[in-house]
Amino acid sequence: MTDNAPSNQPVEPGTWEKVVAANPQHAQNYAERFRRMEAEGADLLGEARFVDAMVQRNARILDAGCGPGRHAGYLSARGHDVVGVDLDETLIEIAKVEHPGPVYFAQDLTLLDLAGHGVEAGFDAILCAGNAIAFPAASSRRRILTNLAKALAPEGRAVFGFGQGRGYEFNDFITDAQASGLVLELGLSTWDLKPFREDSNFLVAIFSRA
């Protein structure tokens, strides 16, 4: 697997860190927005249902960029062994309170250290949704993808979903993923399984390990 940046190289701030630096209440506001959407009846769990359908019962699942924990909590409630990781400590604390069950810890995925948190690698599935893969700086993306590839079980699969216009072209993402130890199995345009086309503005991509 390829890692194009030394592990001791400083992590360049991504979009999320820059927004939080400009507005320290951003994480709280982000979580509150989804609370309002849920109260209004919005379906916020399509990503979690997607992953739940992919795996056997009692699977090990990593929610990479878990935010306030709604997907991790849903998957845990269905009997899976779930770990949620996010770089934002505020969101992790919200997740622990609002969606208990998974193991949560705060860490930049560029520096992902599962063993340091008492967690074994070998996940049956990794979910990276909510545009989380588009937030990091371009210099960090292959390091993150390499870390996630290493965290998969040999037959595990990683699922990423993000929208166009986030500063990460779909073709560049696929190239980075394949250079980082992942093999594209399927591309879709929605979490409800609509096929990906050239004019699609959202990508749901399923990868296995190389």
Rank of each mutant, 00 (worst) to 15 (best):
T190Q: 09
R209M: 00
T175L: 13
V11A: 09
Q25R: 12
D63L: 08
L186K: 14
G73C: 08
V83G: 06
G167A: 13
D176G: 04
D199K: 14
G156S: 02
A151I: 10
A179Q: 08
V55E: 05
D113F: 07
R209L: 02
D192H: 15
I206Q: 04
L111F: 00
A138S: 08
E98N: 01
Q107V: 14
G46K: 01
V103E: 10
A138N: 07
L91K: 06
W191G: 05
P195W: 11
M1H: 06
A151G: 02
A129F: 13
L109V: 15
V55P: 09
A21S: 05
V119A: 10
A151K: 06
E12A: 11
I144H: 03
D43H: 13
A158I: 12
N171Q: 08
F207A: 02
E169V: 15
L127N: 03
P13V: 00
D81K: 13
D86M: 14
F202M: 13
T15I: 15
Y168D: 03
A134R: 06
L193V: 07
P13H: 02
V183C: 07
P100G: 11
I144V: 15
F196T: 00
L182K: 06
R57P: 00
Q164D: 05
L193Y: 15
E169M: 12
N131F: 02
H80K: 02
V103Q: 10
Q25E: 03
V19S: 01
Q107A: 09
L109S: 07
S200L: 06
Q9F: 09
S76Q: 11
Y104P: 07
S208Y: 14
Y30G: 00
G79C: 12
R78Y: 13
A149R: 06
R209F: 04
L44G: 01
Q178C: 08
H71I: 06
R78S: 04
S139M: 09
Q28L: 14
Q25A: 08
E47R: 15
E198W: 13
A95H: 07
L184Q: 07
R35D: 02
D63H: 10
D86H: 01
S76P: 11
R166D: 00
V11M: 09
S139G: 05
D108V: 15
P154Q: 04
L193E: 09
D88S: 11
L114V: 10
E32W: 05
D124G: 12
R157L: 03
Q9Y: 09
M54R: 11
D176W: 09
A95F: 04
Q107E: 12
R35C: 07
F202Q: 07
G167W: 08
A106R: 12
N29S: 05
L109W: 05
T190G: 09
